[in-house]
Amino acid sequence: MSKQLKPGQGPLDYARRPWIMTLFAGVLVFLYAPIASLIAFSFNVDKSGVWHGFTFMNYVKAWHNEAIFYALSNSITIAILSTIFSTIFGAMTALALWRFKFPFKNAYEGFMTLPIVVPEICMGISLAMFFSYTGMMAGVRDWLWPFNLINIIFAHIAFCFPFVAVVVRARLQGFNRQLEEASKDLGATETQTFMNVLVPFMVPSLVAGGLLAFTLSLDDFVITLFSSGPGSVTFPVKIYGMVKRGVDMQINAASTILIVITLAATLLAMKLQAPNKSGH
């Protein structure tokens, strides 16, 4: 080769090609500009799209807006409760799939991932009909909060736990079953082995799966829209209603709060899932 290559000019250094770098920057602008502008305008003084000065008023107003506050507390309650149950159900399903051979196992496994692939709107309306036919839609309306949210919680568990099962199963794949045998050889019972050997091994995936379920539940709009009866509004459903009525900077403030909560949960999950932190 006659000319000396500088670092970054090698034939496989695709990341340093000017056109790819330009594309990368362009896509980042495309991805982040709308969100950045949404967050920026949550601090705008008035509701026109023109910048008129900095204020926290929109946050204060959103906080004191009872409908928004109620929707947000609904969303968080639903997310916490459905996370707890989805994590338990997901972990149990993953354990059953990982440990046992049983007839029609492949079919069962495929069937358990159906809520992940079926269009959300189909699942949403099937649940809506189910709830109104069984009388659950009208029946729970007058129950005490948070029991009036029970339909939404049931629906959220149904689409969240398969995701947890996938995450936990992936982690279990790396478990060395000789550890279990060693524990039993040393005199531990089945239960002790489970609690002291297997569960600690599963913990990172339980946390990661749980946080995934939390963000899925907190963010869900489509299924909630259909399965929520009158009166039980969640945060995304409330935002949808406000968006349909026009632009209002309180939406921006409320959305910014939701973005911050979700991103914090996500970054935490990623940190916990990072290979060097999970004891590999």
Binding site: P34, D219, I259, T262
Partner: peptide, 16 residues
């Protein structure tokens, strides 16, 4: 952005 609510992303697009 995958983790940001679909509705919020769409609203952000709408408003700019």
């Amino acid at each position: 952005p995958f983790w940001i609510n679909l509705l919020i992303c769409t609203y952000a697009m709408y408003s700019i």
